[in-house]
Design a protein around this nucleic acid. Structure first.
Lengths: 212, 212
DNA sequence: ACAATAAAAGTAATCAATTACTTTCTTTAA
DNA sequence: TTAAAGAAAGTAATTGATTACTTTTATTGT
């Protein structure tokens, strides 16, 4: 007893733990396959549960995706946005955040698929709203940093701030797409510094660091 | 008579015409909904055919996607890559190609969804191979142009060419994602020149045009 | 008339969700 | 302290809807 048809011992977890387990399994699976082809059966197989058990913890598949989107948003906050605060100089903060984001993606290759996949869906599903909100925050964070950099005179005052924010996110996108084409996730972290160096060349002051 | 259940008159086309009609309908529909959710029923409804009729012209849905990918590749050749040849100076050619690409996307909003969606799928489906090949060609075209620009002394000789090619495609990606977030495709063409100006600032020679 | 083109009706497979029921965990009263 | 009661977490099987694809029947231009 206490076993399933395939002989694997059943493990009991409370709903909170299970939800975390399942959400992280989804993120992991997105690294291996297109999110839109992820079935509830595949997800529960990954965590060692029967297909129906999923609905003990999420009222619907759509609610599961909402939880996944929230998880991604929190992780970006903790692992990417937060590193910017450790730097006084805005250009250094931008670079640190850029590299942290690439590191995060390299460790969780499903993330871009997840976010892009959600953005591609039409309508206003909750999960899409969360992704949109997260990217909006990100954009605002970059704009604020660039403006601070202008004040610190490490970024040229003539910069087109909004364009620079778009290009910042584009630089990350470009790296990701390049990795997708090559099918080589590991190349991400190697190439990232070169991309950021080129990106920052577009707004760097000629003079050296003014402070610190 | 000569009508279908819904009263729409039946129209006869030979297979070649039908294939074109269907492929273009798919591209159009990708502008409105996630490609992975496109059903054969939705596609045929769009062109005014019964669902089963699709398989008179394509042996399988996968073959249809292959044709769609080929169509996109050809359009990129004709409407984007070709404009680069109209400019002697490499930096002007890059700019023209960039803006042509954005114009192409603005006219066919389904294109990024289509290509990204295909890239996100794992494995080596024919359609994915075509998209990958197309993007590889694109990348090589950009690299060649940048190198020519160095020779023409309108691009700084110290440039990291490969990084510049990644950032070029990233700039387009960034614009597209930004438009996806805002849900505003029309903003694309307005913002594009600003993004390219910033992008080109990263490798522009300080001196003015050397020739022409 | 007849071959091409399409509609209509079907099929097997797949999917999210539900059901009826079992096992484990947790709480609490004696 | 502990055993009984109930809540929570699990399974296996099934459902209705949807899907890509097939087969059969009807219509059309030549």
């Amino acid at each position: 007893m206490a076993t399933r048809a395939n002989g694997i011992k059943r493990t009991y977890q409370n709903t909170e733990q299970r939800q975390s387990t399942i959400v992280e399994a989804v993120v992991h699976l997105c690294g291996e396959q297109d999110p839109s082809t992820l079935t509830t059966a595949r997800i529960t197989e990954e965590v060692g549960l029967s297909q129906g058990a999923l609905f003990k913890h999420f009222p619907s598949k759509s609610c599961l995706w909402e939880s996944v989107a929230r998880w991604v948003s929190e992780q970006l906050d903790q692992r990417v946005f937060s590193v910017a605060d450790e730097h006084e100089r805005a250009d250094k903060a931008l670079e640190a955040m850029f590299l942290a984001h690439i590191r995060f993606i390299a460790r969780n290759p499903g993330i871009p698929r997840l976010m892009l996949g959600e953005l591609q869906k039409p309508g206003n599903r909750p999960a899409k709203r969360i992704v949109r909100q997260t990217l909006s925050n990100y954009r605002q964070k970059v704009i604020t940093l660039i403006n601070r950099g202008v004040g610190q005179q490490c970024i040229t005052a003539t910069i087109d701030t909004e364009a620079a924010a778009v290009l910042y996110l584009g630089a990350i996108q470009g790296l990701v797409v390049q990795a997708m084409i090559g099918g080589d996730i590991q190349s991400l972290e190697q190439t990232a510094p070169r991309i950021f160096r080129l990106y920052s060349a577009s707004f760097q002051e000629v003079s050296d660091a003014p402070q610190a």
